[in-house]
Amino acid sequence: MCAITWEVFASRGFETAWPELGEAVLRARGRAVGTDPEPYWVTYELDTADRFVTRRLRVTVESADGSRTLDLLHDGGGAWTANGAPLPDLDGALDCDLGLCPLTNTMPVLRHGLHREPGEREFLMAWVSVPDLAVRPSRQTYTHLRPGHVRFSSGDFTSELEFDEEGFVVDYPQLATRLTGR
């Protein structure tokens, strides 16, 4: 198992993930520290099912306000729950997107090979904001620009992400850049 570490500009912090890629599945655990908007620690575990579809994201945040935990589950048929409560606004979403976490951009890119071949895909994501762990629907578009480069857009935000051959983020301008790994 390898580790990937990013400097996360958006939170004025760092993240390290320990991903394991299998045949169309991704499992990872990670830890992050941020100081913006407040000092906090994040610990997460991510499990995907076939074709990199999110199965579960467990996240814990520790801050001056105490500890918060989120257990986000996808039933494989398009329905989501957060700590057991249904999230009907996310029906049909396949992926989670943990805020300020470059790792979670990997699943949709790998599923459609967008870091290697032409294409554009729009996704509904289960977006988890950090550090409050609120879950909201997020429409996101990924567009292949050239090998290893994908444009990400959501609302008014657009950025050109750089991916390595395995599909992990190397550089995400305005968010994070990789320091070590793979």
Score class of each variant (00 low, 15 high):
Leu21Trp: 02
Arg29Lys: 15
Arg29Asn: 14
Arg29Asp: 12
Arg31Asn: 08
Arg31Lys: 11
Ala32Cys: 09
Ala32Ile: 02
Ala32Phe: 08
Ala32His: 01
Ala32Ser: 14
Val33Arg: 10
Gly34Asn: 01
Pro37Lys: 06
Trp41Thr: 15
Trp41Tyr: 15
Tyr44Val: 06
Tyr44Gly: 04
Tyr44Glu: 02
Thr48Lys: 04
Thr48Gly: 09
Arg51Leu: 06
Phe52Gln: 03
Thr54Trp: 00
Thr54Met: 05
Arg55Tyr: 12
Leu57Ser: 09
Leu57Gly: 02
Arg58Cys: 15
Thr60Val: 14
Thr60Tyr: 09
Val61Cys: 05
Val61Lys: 04
Ser63Cys: 07
Ser63Pro: 00
Ala64Glu: 15
Gly66Asp: 06
Arg68Pro: 11
Arg68Ala: 15
Thr69Ile: 11
Thr69Pro: 05
Asp71Val: 12
Leu72Ala: 05
His74Thr: 14
His74Val: 13
Asp75Arg: 07
Asp75Pro: 12
Asp75Met: 00
Gly78Ala: 08
Ala79Asn: 10
Ala82Gln: 12
Asn83Cys: 07
Gly84Met: 02
Gly84Lys: 01
Pro86Arg: 11
Leu87Val: 12
Asp89Met: 04
Asp89Ser: 13
Asp89Thr: 14
Gly92Leu: 05
Gly92His: 04
Leu94Val: 11
Leu94Trp: 12
Asp95Leu: 03
Asp97Phe: 02
Leu98Pro: 05
Leu98Cys: 07
Gly99Leu: 00
Gly99Lys: 00
Cys101Tyr: 00
Pro102Cys: 04
Leu103Arg: 00
Leu103Gly: 09
Asn105Lys: 03
Thr106Pro: 00
Thr106Tyr: 03
Met107Leu: 14
Pro108Met: 06
Pro108Tyr: 14
Val109Arg: 05
Val109His: 01
Leu110Asp: 00
Leu110Ile: 03
His112Lys: 08
His115Glu: 06
His115Arg: 04
His115Ile: 03
His115Ala: 10
Glu117Asn: 10
Pro118Ile: 11
Gly119Met: 05
Arg121Pro: 07
Arg121Ser: 08
Glu122Tyr: 08
Glu122Trp: 02
Glu122Gln: 09
Phe123Pro: 01
Phe123Cys: 09
Phe123Gln: 11
Leu124Arg: 10
Ala126Met: 03
Val128His: 10
Asp132Tyr: 06
Val135Lys: 00
Arg136Tyr: 10
Arg136Pro: 10
Ser138Ile: 03
Arg139Tyr: 05
Gln140Pro: 09
Gln140Asp: 09
Tyr142Pro: 06
His144Trp: 14
His144Asp: 09
Leu145Met: 12
Arg146Phe: 08
Pro147Lys: 11
Gly148Thr: 07
His149Asn: 08
Val150Ser: 08
Arg151Gln: 15
Phe152Met: 13
Gly155Pro: 03
Asp156Arg: 07
Ser159Gln: 08
Glu160Lys: 12
Leu161Asp: 15
Glu162Val: 07
Phe163Ser: 06
Phe163His: 03
Phe163Lys: 01
Phe163Ala: 04
Asp164Val: 00
Asp164Gly: 01
